[in-house]
Amino acid sequence: MNNIEDKIIQYFEHELSREEAAQIEQLITENVEARKLFDQYKSVYVSFDQIPHQAPSDRLKQNFSLFLNEEIKQQAKSTKNTNYTKTIWMLAIGAILAAMLFFLVKNKADNQEINQQMIAMNENLTKLMQNESSSHRIKAVQISATLPDNNQQALDLLMDAMAKDPSSNVRLSALEALEKHIDNEQVRASIYKSMADETDQVVLISYINILTESKEKSAITELKKITKDQAMDQFIKDEAQLGLFQLQEY
């Protein structure tokens, strides 16, 4: 009977094929026990269908509407707050960008101002270097020495003074001012050339000392020229020789 019960349940669950369902329908017409079981299961299934469907009161819908409206309001407020926060952020970013732009522009303006001042100063220095008084020209050299390294015009002024100024004191001041630029190839070449043309012994000794202290290997060739110069005084040759020893030790 268990097998029949299973088949009856399958029948009510619509799990049987048409043929199998027909067999069950046939069986219950022939078998009293099967019919009884069938009716009992039918009663159970029918009972489910009789369970009444109840309608909730209007209060449920009203409460739900209130709840939903409140949620929609909250959502709108939240979106508004999000937009407000977004706006604040946008304003903050805008302010930062504006500040950066301001400083960039200002910096550019400052640079332009500095450049203009530099041009004016170089012009004044040039005029000063042309002054008849050597003390004025030494002053110009000292000022030039304090200018930024990238001021090519100041370097040109110093190199020119080192090579051509009629005063040995001015030439010496210019040489000392250029010592810190010895790594600059242009300055070094200028020093070598001026040294070869220098006639003042005191200034020559300064050239030798500066080149020795610079530990610049290329100075060896220049010092050797002095040691081999027949017209050069011996004490200058000795100074150059001493410099050569020191340079060759490095």
């Binding site: 469907h53 309608a55 909730p56 449920l60 819908k61 739900f64 509407s65 939903l68 949620e71 929609i72």
Partner: peptide
């Protein structure tokens, strides 16, 4: 959120 009202109508009973 308004679409929840449609689902409420379909399912609340």
């Amino acid at each position: 959120l308004n679409d929840l009202a449609i689902l409420f109508d379909r399912y609340h009973e």
